[in-house]
Design a protein around this nucleic acid. Structure first.
Lengths: 344, 344
DNA sequence: CTGTTAGCGCCTTCAT
DNA sequence: ATGAAGGCGCTAACAG
């Protein structure tokens, strides 16, 4: 025999009063006598009554829920971002539903449908590396559900976005490499489908240009972020006639793997090859040598994205503003590019 | 003007047929003519129709949703566990709602209430370090909603649990330290409120006993997992008359911090102090020196817990089985305890 | 201050 | 093969 949940009807029956009175008491309406209110609240408490959110959502045509779709949960970036977005959401009375895509486009589409089925009031999303079609997201806009992108954005869609200055971050990172006297700087970039890949690539190129270092296409590889291939590309770099003396890598998890592989091949970091990553993952400060990387203000990104989303919710579609908020990055210099003196 | 979602009624009206027919068509009922079915499906598709899960949940008194509450999302343990639990859940037709507690009891209680409000069909939970009262979880049982614990379990509650053999894991880890000729082995343990802390402590003690090493209470500290305090305890250890030559640490994130601090103090690892952690976090293999640790079969834990939960759902309370599944750990030996030959 | 009613979107039963 | 009606839990609008 499966037990039923406690409902307002149950409470009403026990107290021999109407459901509306119970409902009002539970919501602290003024029009309820002290005595009744107390009786209701006590009984509700005793019976572990919880408002059924599904009923509420159905009634109000509003779920008070925000969906968050992230490409993955590996590394510290997305978990941290979720935590800070959630904090902001709860402050505004919204719950969140999280789902992750294993970097897989199909999962992203499924997750988007699920969010729709859950009637989320808004969607926060960072795309998978595979995503090139955005139909599953356009649906939200057609339905009047606001969408806010962060990190992995879709440039074609006119909605609010929270990003960091990938171009500048990359530019400064590469300039830093140049300043440490590296000249053959390679770039292990991301898939061109992602805007972040393109911006970071541009920053890389412009930094070289500024310092009159010729851009050598041999030294530029765009890869699909699949872990297994890192070694292949690294091997390629090292086998060049004139191999790189530094590598600017699209993200930290990849850069960390690059460092592991370089060490295994007996190369010294940074003397033989310097390495720079992007995002300042939790593990980056811990590895040997610690990774120089372009830090992102993750908490700020999460909070900002959530705020922007909540602002759009309940607002008429015609009033939506597709602001793109670009936050600053911050180059964190560690020993993967600069050898500590006292280490020698 | 806020747009409404597409409903069965909308489709019915457009096609001039009844709602029930539309509903049947959408569910592939046999009693619908081919023509009608096609018309409905086409229109549904065109209008981006999605079943309203709240309505379904209300109607069926079943949300087809599993709640997962984790103490935090820092480190790779819980994210990985969530991913594998989710995989299993989806296979069985369940969606999941994740929430994290920032290691805070109050948040755990709030999250539990939220899960109740969402009418989850079952709950997967790992407790925060602060949790000592379980009233918020007992409610689930009273309501006939199955609960399955994993990792941080509550020993007092008679429900299914998925754990690893913490005792054995600790025992083997400490024995390994003894085999590397360490004799003053300290234990930086977790709060005694957590069963894992107690079991790991027992494993530690018994390993010492087996090898006739006296247990020195000076060398045993139980701390509350708050990051800031790690240095205090470490400093305490090092200031002892006879300081430890090895430390067995309650978990990897703490052990990693211990290694950082030891290095900063100029101590050599493992020569001066060896370090062992627990759980094999993603970062553990990457730090310098790589951390020897007791690995847990995380994916298996997640999948097993989800399976056990789903098995209980829909089953009568009287049939619930409070099985505790204990999985094996696996000692991963790295350079924080054993120096590589070719490194010298 | 309290009660009655209607309906959110969906499906199932019963009738046709 | 189709339609009509009722109800899941809740609240807002309307009566008293």
């Amino acid at each position: 025999m499966k037990k039923r949940q406690t409902t307002i009807t149950d409470i009403a029956k026990k107290l021999h009063i109407s459901k509306s009175t119970v409902s009002r008491a539970l919501q602290n309406h003024p029009n309820v006598s002290q005595k009744t209110r107390k009786a209701v609240l006590d009984l509700a408490n005793e019976m572990d009554y919880r408002r059924n959110l599904h009923a509420l959502s159905l009634l109000n045509r509003k779920s008070n829920t925000i969906g968050i779709i992230v490409p993955e949960l590996i590394g510290s970036y997305f978990p941290q971002m979720i935590i800070s977005a959630q904090k902001e959401a709860i402050k505004a009375g919204y719950n969140i539903i999280i789902s992750q895509c294993n970097e897989c486009y199909k999962d992203e589409v499924e997750n988007a449908k699920l969010m729709l089925a859950y009637q989320v009031d808004g969607l926060l999303i960072s795309l998978t590396k595979e995503t090139r079609n955005y139909d599953h997201l356009e649906i939200f806009l057609r339905k009047g559900i606001p969408v806010v992108f962060f990190n992995r954005i879709c440039e074609k869609m006119i909605v609010p976005k929270v990003i960091v200055d990938d171009y500048e971050g990359a530019f400064l990172a590469v300039e830093h490499l140049i300043e440490t006297n590296k000249r053959r700087i390679a770039h292990l970039g991301g898939p061109p489908s992602l805007a972040i890949s393109r911006h970071r690539l541009n920053g890389y190129k412009d930094a070289l240009k500024k310092h009159q270092i010729p851009i050598d296409e041999e030294l530029i590889v765009s890869f699909d972020l699949s872990f297994e291939k890192i070694n292949i590309y690294l091997q390629y770099f090292l086998s060049l006639q004139s191999p790189p003396d530094a590598i600017f890598v699209i993200n930290d998890t990849t850069a960390i793997e690059v460092i592991q592989l370089l060490k295994r091949k007996g190369l010294r970091i940074p003397e033989d090859v310097a390495v720079v990553g992007f995002s300042d993952d939790y593990a980056s400060a811990l590895i040997d040598p610690p990774l120089t990387t372009v830090a992102q203000p993750i908490e700020l990104i999460g909070a900002t994205a959530a705020k922007m989303l909540i602002e759009q919710i309940d607002r008429d579609v015609s009033e939506w503003k597709a602001v793109t908020k670009m936050l600053k990055t911050n180059l964190v210099i560690r020993q993967s590019t600069v050898k500590l003196k006292h280490n020698n």
